Amino acid sequence: MYLIVFDVDGTLVDSQNTILHGLQVGFEAVGLPMPDRKTALSIVGRSLEEAFADLVGPAHADKAQEMADAYRASKISRRGLGLDVDPLYPGAREAVEKLHAQDDILLGIATGKAMRGVRHMQDTHDLHGRFVTIQTADTSPSKPHPDMILRAIAETGADPHRTLMIGDTGFDMAMARAAGAHAVGVTWGYHDRAQLTAGGANRIIEGFEDLDLALNEILEFSEVSV
Protein backbone atom coordinates (compact mmCIF):
# COMPACT_ATOMS: atom_id res chain seq x y z
CA MET A 1 0.00 0.00 0.00
CA TYR A 2 1.19 3.49 -0.90
CA LEU A 3 0.28 6.72 0.90
CA ILE A 4 0.38 9.94 -1.11
CA VAL A 5 -0.14 13.13 0.88
CA PHE A 6 -1.03 16.48 -0.69
CA ASP A 7 -0.47 19.97 0.60
CA VAL A 8 -3.41 22.29 -0.14
CA ASP A 9 -2.45 25.97 -0.57
CA GLY A 10 -0.14 26.39 -3.54
CA THR A 11 -0.41 22.72 -4.49
CA LEU A 12 -4.07 21.80 -4.98
CA VAL A 13 -5.62 25.27 -4.85
CA ASP A 14 -4.46 28.71 -5.96
CA SER A 15 -5.16 30.63 -2.76
CA GLN A 16 -2.68 33.48 -3.07
CA ASN A 17 -5.26 36.26 -3.36
CA THR A 18 -7.35 35.14 -0.40
CA ILE A 19 -4.22 34.52 1.69
CA LEU A 20 -2.88 37.99 0.91
CA HIS A 21 -6.22 39.51 1.90
CA GLY A 22 -6.15 37.63 5.22
CA LEU A 23 -2.57 38.69 5.90
CA GLN A 24 -3.49 42.31 5.17
CA VAL A 25 -6.32 42.08 7.70
CA GLY A 26 -3.88 40.69 10.26
CA PHE A 27 -1.36 43.49 9.76
CA GLU A 28 -4.05 46.16 9.84
CA ALA A 29 -5.41 44.74 13.11
CA VAL A 30 -2.17 45.64 14.91
CA GLY A 31 -1.24 48.73 12.90
CA LEU A 32 1.79 47.30 11.17
CA PRO A 33 2.69 47.70 7.46
CA MET A 34 2.12 44.75 5.17
CA PRO A 35 5.34 43.30 3.67
CA ASP A 36 5.78 42.97 -0.06
CA ARG A 37 3.90 40.23 -1.89
CA LYS A 38 6.83 37.83 -2.30
CA THR A 39 7.79 38.07 1.37
CA ALA A 40 4.20 37.65 2.50
CA LEU A 41 3.64 34.54 0.40
CA SER A 42 6.95 33.00 1.45
CA ILE A 43 5.36 31.84 4.73
CA VAL A 44 2.48 29.92 3.12
CA GLY A 45 2.40 26.44 4.58
CA ARG A 46 3.29 27.53 8.09
CA SER A 47 0.64 27.66 10.81
CA LEU A 48 -0.82 31.14 11.18
CA GLU A 49 0.81 32.14 14.46
CA GLU A 50 4.22 30.99 13.27
CA ALA A 51 3.70 32.63 9.88
CA PHE A 52 2.89 36.02 11.39
CA ALA A 53 5.75 35.68 13.88
CA ASP A 54 8.13 35.00 10.99
CA LEU A 55 6.85 38.03 9.08
CA VAL A 56 6.94 40.57 11.92
CA GLY A 57 10.16 39.37 13.54
CA PRO A 58 11.13 39.31 17.22
CA ALA A 59 10.25 42.97 17.81
CA HIS A 60 6.54 42.32 17.25
CA ALA A 61 6.27 38.58 17.89
CA ASP A 62 3.88 39.31 20.76
CA LYS A 63 1.33 40.52 18.19
CA ALA A 64 1.30 37.28 16.18
CA GLN A 65 -1.64 35.76 18.06
CA GLU A 66 -3.82 38.85 17.59
CA MET A 67 -2.93 38.91 13.90
CA ALA A 68 -3.76 35.23 13.48
CA ASP A 69 -7.09 35.71 15.24
CA ALA A 70 -7.97 38.60 12.91
CA TYR A 71 -7.03 36.51 9.88
CA ARG A 72 -9.25 33.63 11.02
CA ALA A 73 -12.20 35.88 11.79
CA SER A 74 -11.94 37.45 8.35
CA LYS A 75 -11.82 34.04 6.68
CA ILE A 76 -14.90 32.79 8.50
CA SER A 77 -16.83 35.94 7.64
CA ARG A 78 -15.83 35.97 3.97
CA ARG A 79 -16.53 32.29 3.47
CA GLY A 80 -19.97 32.82 4.94
CA LEU A 81 -20.53 35.46 2.27
CA GLY A 82 -19.18 33.19 -0.48
CA LEU A 83 -16.21 35.48 -1.12
CA ASP A 84 -13.18 33.24 -0.46
CA VAL A 85 -13.30 30.65 -3.25
CA ASP A 86 -9.87 29.36 -4.27
CA PRO A 87 -9.70 27.63 -7.67
CA LEU A 88 -8.03 24.27 -8.19
CA TYR A 89 -4.83 24.36 -10.19
CA PRO A 90 -5.02 22.85 -13.70
CA GLY A 91 -4.84 19.07 -13.48
CA ALA A 92 -5.33 18.91 -9.72
CA ARG A 93 -8.76 17.27 -9.79
CA GLU A 94 -7.69 14.78 -12.44
CA ALA A 95 -4.59 13.81 -10.47
CA VAL A 96 -6.56 13.28 -7.25
CA GLU A 97 -9.31 11.28 -8.96
CA LYS A 98 -6.82 9.12 -10.87
CA LEU A 99 -4.85 8.23 -7.76
CA HIS A 100 -7.98 7.76 -5.66
CA ALA A 101 -9.19 5.14 -8.14
CA GLN A 102 -6.12 2.94 -7.56
CA ASP A 103 -6.63 0.08 -5.10
CA ASP A 104 -3.06 0.21 -3.79
CA ILE A 105 -3.01 3.95 -3.12
CA LEU A 106 -4.31 5.90 -0.14
CA LEU A 107 -4.53 9.68 -0.28
CA GLY A 108 -4.01 12.18 2.50
CA ILE A 109 -3.71 15.89 3.21
CA ALA A 110 -1.13 17.72 5.34
CA THR A 111 -1.73 21.45 5.49
CA GLY A 112 -1.16 24.57 7.52
CA LYS A 113 -4.88 25.24 7.17
CA ALA A 114 -7.31 24.54 9.97
CA MET A 115 -9.69 21.62 9.45
CA ARG A 116 -12.42 24.21 8.85
CA GLY A 117 -10.48 25.46 5.82
CA VAL A 118 -9.96 21.96 4.45
CA ARG A 119 -13.68 21.20 4.74
CA HIS A 120 -14.44 24.44 2.91
CA MET A 121 -12.08 23.38 0.10
CA GLN A 122 -13.72 19.96 -0.08
CA ASP A 123 -17.19 21.48 -0.13
CA THR A 124 -16.23 23.98 -2.82
CA HIS A 125 -14.68 21.42 -5.15
CA ASP A 126 -16.66 18.30 -4.22
CA LEU A 127 -13.60 16.46 -2.93
CA HIS A 128 -15.09 14.69 0.05
CA GLY A 129 -14.24 11.00 0.38
CA ARG A 130 -10.95 11.13 -1.50
CA PHE A 131 -8.59 11.58 1.47
CA VAL A 132 -8.45 8.93 4.19
CA THR A 133 -6.25 11.01 6.50
CA ILE A 134 -6.32 14.80 6.93
CA GLN A 135 -3.69 16.51 9.06
CA THR A 136 -4.05 20.20 9.89
CA ALA A 137 -2.68 22.98 12.04
CA ASP A 138 -5.42 22.26 14.61
CA THR A 139 -3.64 19.17 15.92
CA SER A 140 -0.03 19.33 14.72
CA PRO A 141 2.98 21.65 15.09
CA SER A 142 3.70 23.86 12.13
CA LYS A 143 5.60 22.53 9.14
CA PRO A 144 8.44 21.57 8.76
CA HIS A 145 7.92 19.55 11.96
CA PRO A 146 7.26 15.95 10.79
CA ASP A 147 4.21 15.39 13.02
CA MET A 148 1.63 15.68 10.23
CA ILE A 149 3.28 13.00 8.12
CA LEU A 150 3.92 10.79 11.13
CA ARG A 151 0.26 11.05 12.11
CA ALA A 152 -0.84 10.24 8.56
CA ILE A 153 1.44 7.19 8.54
CA ALA A 154 0.11 6.04 11.92
CA GLU A 155 -3.53 6.50 10.92
CA THR A 156 -3.17 4.53 7.69
CA GLY A 157 -0.58 1.95 8.73
CA ALA A 158 1.58 3.02 5.81
CA ASP A 159 5.30 2.34 5.51
CA PRO A 160 7.32 5.60 5.51
CA HIS A 161 9.29 4.32 2.52
CA ARG A 162 6.00 3.97 0.62
CA THR A 163 4.80 7.41 1.69
CA LEU A 164 5.22 10.53 -0.44
CA MET A 165 4.41 14.21 0.14
CA ILE A 166 3.47 16.52 -2.72
CA GLY A 167 3.87 20.21 -1.90
CA ASP A 168 4.98 23.60 -3.10
CA THR A 169 7.28 24.72 -0.29
CA GLY A 170 10.56 23.75 1.27
CA PHE A 171 8.56 23.30 4.50
CA ASP A 172 6.65 20.43 2.85
CA MET A 173 9.83 18.82 1.59
CA ALA A 174 11.64 19.06 4.92
CA MET A 175 8.59 17.75 6.80
CA ALA A 176 8.37 14.67 4.60
CA ARG A 177 12.07 13.88 4.72
CA ALA A 178 12.18 14.29 8.51
CA ALA A 179 9.41 11.68 8.73
CA GLY A 180 11.34 9.25 6.53
CA ALA A 181 9.04 9.80 3.55
CA HIS A 182 9.67 10.91 -0.04
CA ALA A 183 8.94 14.41 -1.34
CA VAL A 184 7.86 15.84 -4.69
CA GLY A 185 7.99 19.61 -5.08
CA VAL A 186 5.75 21.56 -7.44
CA THR A 187 6.82 24.79 -9.11
CA TRP A 188 3.43 26.51 -9.41
CA GLY A 189 3.17 27.44 -5.72
CA TYR A 190 4.99 29.76 -3.35
CA HIS A 191 8.61 28.54 -3.17
CA ASP A 192 11.09 28.36 -6.01
CA ARG A 193 13.22 25.41 -7.12
CA ALA A 194 16.13 26.39 -4.89
CA GLN A 195 13.91 26.37 -1.80
CA LEU A 196 12.33 23.04 -2.76
CA THR A 197 15.75 21.52 -3.34
CA ALA A 198 17.08 22.89 -0.06
CA GLY A 199 14.09 21.33 1.69
CA GLY A 200 15.03 17.91 0.35
CA ALA A 201 12.80 17.35 -2.69
CA ASN A 202 13.38 14.00 -4.40
CA ARG A 203 11.83 15.35 -7.60
CA ILE A 204 10.44 18.70 -8.76
CA ILE A 205 7.64 18.84 -11.32
CA GLU A 206 6.34 21.64 -13.54
CA GLY A 207 2.73 20.42 -13.83
CA PHE A 208 0.42 17.64 -12.71
CA GLU A 209 1.03 15.95 -16.07
CA ASP A 210 4.55 15.19 -14.79
CA LEU A 211 3.35 13.52 -11.59
CA ASP A 212 2.96 9.97 -12.94
CA LEU A 213 6.60 9.75 -13.99
CA ALA A 214 7.81 11.18 -10.67
CA LEU A 215 5.76 8.67 -8.70
CA ASN A 216 6.93 5.79 -10.84
CA GLU A 217 10.57 6.78 -10.43
CA ILE A 218 10.45 7.41 -6.69
CA LEU A 219 8.07 4.71 -5.47
CA GLU A 220 8.70 2.20 -8.26
CA PHE A 221 5.05 1.85 -9.18
CA SER A 222 5.89 -0.97 -11.57
CA GLU A 223 2.80 -2.90 -10.56
CA VAL A 224 0.46 0.08 -10.31
CA SER A 225 -1.17 1.87 -13.24
CA VAL A 226 -1.18 5.60 -12.57
Results as ranks from 00 to 15, higher is better:
A64H: 03
L211A: 01
M165N: 10
R93H: 05
A61V: 15
L88R: 03
D7S: 12
A73V: 12
V132C: 15
L3E: 07
P90T: 00
T163G: 11
K143C: 10
D103G: 13
G185D: 00
T133V: 12
F6W: 06
R151Q: 14
L83N: 05
G26T: 01
H128P: 12
V224P: 12
A174Y: 06
F208H: 05
K38F: 15
N216F: 14
E155P: 04
A101L: 07
D103F: 10
Y89E: 01
V224M: 11
M173G: 08
A176S: 09
H145P: 11
A179W: 10
H21E: 03
T11Y: 01
G117R: 04
Q195H: 11
Q195L: 09
R151E: 13
Q135H: 04
A181G: 14
R46H: 14
T124C: 00
T111V: 02
Q16L: 06
F171D: 06
L3C: 12
G129D: 05
V186P: 05
D62W: 10
T197F: 02
T136G: 00
L219R: 14
E220A: 15
Y190L: 07
L215K: 03
A158Y: 05
A51Y: 02
E50P: 08
N202P: 08
R203G: 10
L127Y: 02
G22C: 01
E155Y: 04
T111W: 01
I153P: 09
Q135D: 14
K113Y: 05
D123H: 10
Y71D: 01
G108C: 14
I43L: 11
T187N: 07
E66C: 09
G199L: 01
R37M: 01
S222L: 14
R93E: 00
R72A: 04
D86T: 02
A154E: 13
S142C: 01
A194F: 08
M34I: 09
E206C: 08
L20H: 00
F6R: 04
M1A: 12
D126I: 05
V25N: 04
L55Y: 11
S77M: 12
